[in-house]
Simulated assay, not measured.
Amino acid sequence: MSLAIFQFFQPMLLASIGVLASVSVMFMVLAYFVYHAFGWEIFKRVGADMKIRRMYVAYRLLVLLLKIDFFAFSGFAVTYIILILKSSDAEFGITIALFPLTLMVLLLAFWGLRRESRVTMWVFIFCLCGSTAYFVFKCARMYDPKQEIKYERQRAMMTYYTIVSLFVVAATLFQSVVCLANFGFGLKERIEMTRGHRSDMEQIQDYYVNAAGDRRMPLEG
Score class of each variant (00 low, 15 high):
residue 221 G to Y: 07
residue 99 F to C: 01
residue 21 A to P: 04
residue 2 S to T: 11
residue 112 G to N: 07
residue 18 G to K: 09
residue 49 D to M: 07
residue 30 L to I: 09
residue 100 P to Y: 03
residue 178 V to W: 02
residue 208 Y to V: 06
residue 25 V to N: 08
residue 153 R to L: 07
residue 90 A to L: 07
residue 89 D to S: 05
residue 55 M to K: 13
residue 174 F to H: 08
residue 124 F to K: 06
residue 85 L to G: 02
residue 163 I to C: 02
residue 78 V to Y: 05
residue 160 Y to K: 05
residue 15 A to I: 04
residue 29 V to Y: 11
residue 60 R to I: 07
residue 216 R to P: 00
residue 81 I to R: 09
residue 135 F to R: 09
residue 118 R to K: 15
residue 32 Y to D: 12
residue 46 V to S: 11
residue 89 D to L: 00
residue 95 T to C: 02
residue 67 K to W: 02
residue 40 W to R: 15
residue 201 M to S: 12
residue 185 F to M: 08
residue 123 V to T: 11
residue 95 T to I: 04
residue 52 I to N: 05
residue 201 M to L: 05
residue 191 I to L: 15
residue 180 L to S: 10
residue 92 F to H: 14
residue 134 Y to D: 09
residue 219 L to I: 08
residue 179 C to H: 00
residue 211 A to D: 14
residue 9 F to N: 11
residue 79 T to D: 08
residue 91 E to I: 00
residue 36 H to C: 02
residue 41 E to R: 15
residue 201 M to I: 07
residue 65 L to V: 01
residue 113 L to A: 04
residue 79 T to A: 15
residue 220 E to K: 10
residue 172 T to L: 00
residue 8 F to W: 11
residue 181 A to S: 14
residue 27 F to S: 11
residue 53 R to K: 15
residue 170 A to H: 03
residue 199 S to G: 13
residue 167 F to H: 03
residue 184 G to S: 06
residue 27 F to C: 08
residue 28 M to E: 11
residue 30 L to M: 13
residue 215 R to P: 02
residue 131 S to Y: 06
residue 82 I to L: 11
residue 19 V to L: 15
residue 65 L to A: 06
residue 221 G to F: 04
residue 129 C to T: 11
residue 99 F to T: 09
residue 190 R to D: 06
residue 41 E to Y: 09
residue 100 P to F: 00
residue 41 E to D: 14
residue 130 G to L: 13
residue 63 V to L: 11
residue 124 F to Q: 05
residue 145 P to H: 07
residue 200 D to K: 10
residue 138 K to A: 10
residue 207 Y to G: 01
residue 1 M to K: 10
residue 151 Y to M: 01
residue 54 R to F: 03
residue 195 R to K: 10
residue 43 F to D: 14
residue 159 T to V: 01
residue 133 A to Q: 05
residue 74 S to K: 10
residue 50 M to A: 14
residue 141 R to A: 15
residue 100 P to W: 03
residue 166 L to W: 00
residue 53 R to G: 11
residue 144 D to A: 07
residue 3 L to S: 12
residue 133 A to Y: 08
residue 187 L to Y: 01
residue 120 T to W: 04
residue 182 N to W: 01
residue 58 A to H: 15
